[in-house]
Design a protein around this nucleic acid. Structure first.
Lengths: 351, 351
DNA sequence: GTGAAAGCGCTAACAT
DNA sequence: ATGTTAGCGCTTTCAC
């Protein structure tokens, strides 16, 4: 129980604490090898481990980074959290996990608290359209990387963003359906009031326009009337959308672009409730490529986010101390993964 | 950027740091109200927040707890992490997240590191049969709660366990199949070398025996020859099992108990690869009741773990300072959720 | 009812 | 090449 201190190590090795400290911090260049060896031995024998609180108090630095996600219960965020923690571990950093539950006030409180804890930086997976709620903390020096939220006008200047190119992603998903021959499509999302969602939707509209179709005639289903859904409940959004859109065969689309895989899976489930077959009766495209997309029956066509790469990148950008390109945004290119949930529409199904 | 200290607050309020500290720590009983008010105002005006590192160095206490899961990428662990973080937040605690990837050495390193960081305690979701690798740290005073791992002979005395009753769960799943009329069943898992898995398997065997069946004739499929799978890849275990078990219709079971939902979903996928229909051609029972179980097609019959309750309990037990019942185990009762993936076997399908 | 003083364990000038 | 020293910001006896 009694923790061994640097002082005890110093005594055991017959040196001063500062020399031990030098060893601990790699300042070992002009040190007599025998001394270093004695110290190393003492450290090992006593089972000494530096006290991080003391170190942090003294240096003002930590090896801890904060991660704020909407909800780790969502497989996409779970996978991201895992990759980020893995990457952080390899460079000796810890991860403090926070679930914002898509609540601005919680998000703000977490950012504040992590900042007070002295974290090295924060990876914020925010769904919010502005960063006003954390701007003052960023101004005070917080190192912030936003994930899946391209930098916006009005954002603090030195916030780094790592994201997929949602515009391209939305376009990819939509033109895939159009190329299969779908003429009546829809875009299903919860609220569109988040940067990434808006981006995907713009990609959808752009693809329609390029095909000579009018987005106004195939608007997004945002479940505006529905209560606000949590993240894990994204699937419920999809299920409701399925009922709303497909109840009337006369107006039902033949293909749907879903805002993410959970929603897509909910859509599939809703279609099944209605006795419709995914793939043959209606095509569904997801977004993210979570593990379950491939497992589903039928396997889900989706826009893949290279999650491991993005996590590594987010960390790298956060830890980058060159001071170059403050406020930069890195957008990765998404990739369409075609599986069984999308097929050509039935003959006669499109008008 | 320049942090405001207790000293500055004291000066602003015209008192000494110790008095401010007293206010901070609620020792305000015999204090003149006017003083407290002046201090409160100073704190608010300066935007003061205590430095946690300094506080921790002084007191030796933290508000941080460690969580070690096999992988938050797995929806079950993601959901658990979320619930634990939510519960922790409500009592003012933070969560440090670690992924062991089911690796004993990593697990040990994490426990060690969290201990050195001075965490309040650790919730360990370990798959390992013994706790030998962390016993010395527990002996030095670490407050450890193991989750989903009932206390075992040889465990350190003061380790608290919170878990589902896996024996009952495995029995529940199996007798459900038997009651439907299945006579040829199987148990699909990765390695059984973990406490929870062994428990579920014993429940399976017990149910068989009670039905007059011989477990030796319907052994577990553990994919012993397969490479070790990570947690997210649990589905792959299921898929392989499907191919191995169902390739030959003459020996194929009519019902399968899967070690968890991810594996069950993989099984479903594998059956589909073989052109078999889940539910009608073969019944599958999962374990956990992750969100996707209900979304799947067909929806998965499964043994539900009351995750939110268990997370709250794990935290409560960890924070409990009455010193009563050291080394206690709390086992919650699982609940069978019957859905479409289990049906009576086809007539003639069972022999 | 409030303040003075000591020190938690560590690091980094600076001195030798 | 190593040691001395002075805190980092906070809490907590112990005086007054």
């Amino acid at each position: 129980m009694a923790r061994v201190t640097i002082q005890q190590v110093a005594e055991a090795a017959g040196v001063s604490p500062s020399t031990v400290s030098n060893v601990l911090n790699g300042r070992t260049n002009r040190m007599v090898p025998a001394t270093k060896e004695r110290i190393d031995r003492a450290i090992a024998e006593l089972g000494y481990h530096p006290n991080k609180a003391a170190r942090q108090l003294r240096t003002g630095r930590t090896q801890t980074i904060g991660l704020i996600v909407p909800s780790v219960g969502n497989p996409f965020w779970g996978a991201f959290a895992r990759e980020l923690e893995l990457a952080a571990m390899t460079v000796g950093h810890n991860l403090l996990l926070c679930n914002s539950e898509r609540d601005a006030e919680r998000e703000r409180r977490y950012v504040q608290e992590l900042w007070e804890d002295g974290v090295r930086g924060i990876v914020l997976c925010s769904s919010l359209p502005t960063l006003d709620h954390v701007a003052d903390i960023v101004a005070r020096g917080l190192r912030l990387v936003t994930f899946d939220r391209q930098a916006q006008p009005g954002d603090p200047e030195n916030v780094i963003s790592v994201s997929i190119n949602n515009l391209v992603g939305g376009h990819l998903a939509t033109s895939h359906l159009l190329e299969l021959g779908h003429q009546r499509v829809s875009f299903v999302s919860g609220s569109l009031a988040s940067v990434n969602r808006a981006g995907r939707y713009r990609g959808y509209c752009m693809a329609l326009e390029q095909a000579g179709l009018d987005p106004a005639e195939m608007p997004a289903w945002t479940g505006a009337d529905a209560p606000a859904f949590g993240d894990v409940e994204a699937a419920e959004v999809g299920r409701r959308a399925a009922h709303a859109l497909f109840e009337d065969p006369a107006t039902a689309p033949t293909g749907v672009v879903a805002i993410n895989d959970m929603t897509a899976l909910g859509l599939c489930r809703g279609l099944r409730d209605l006795g419709l077959q995914v793939g043959t009766d209606a095509s569904i495209v997801g977004f993210d490529d979570i593990v379950l997309a491939e497992l589903y029956d039928p396997p889900l066509t989706t826009v893949r986010q290279p999650i491991a790469r993005m996590a590594a990148l987010a960390l790298e950008e956060m830890l980058d101390d060159t001071g170059e390109d403050p406020g930069r945004t890195v957008l990765l290119r998404p990739e369409l993964v075609v599986r069984g949930s999308t097929q050509a529409p039935r003959v006669g199904a499109s008008r």
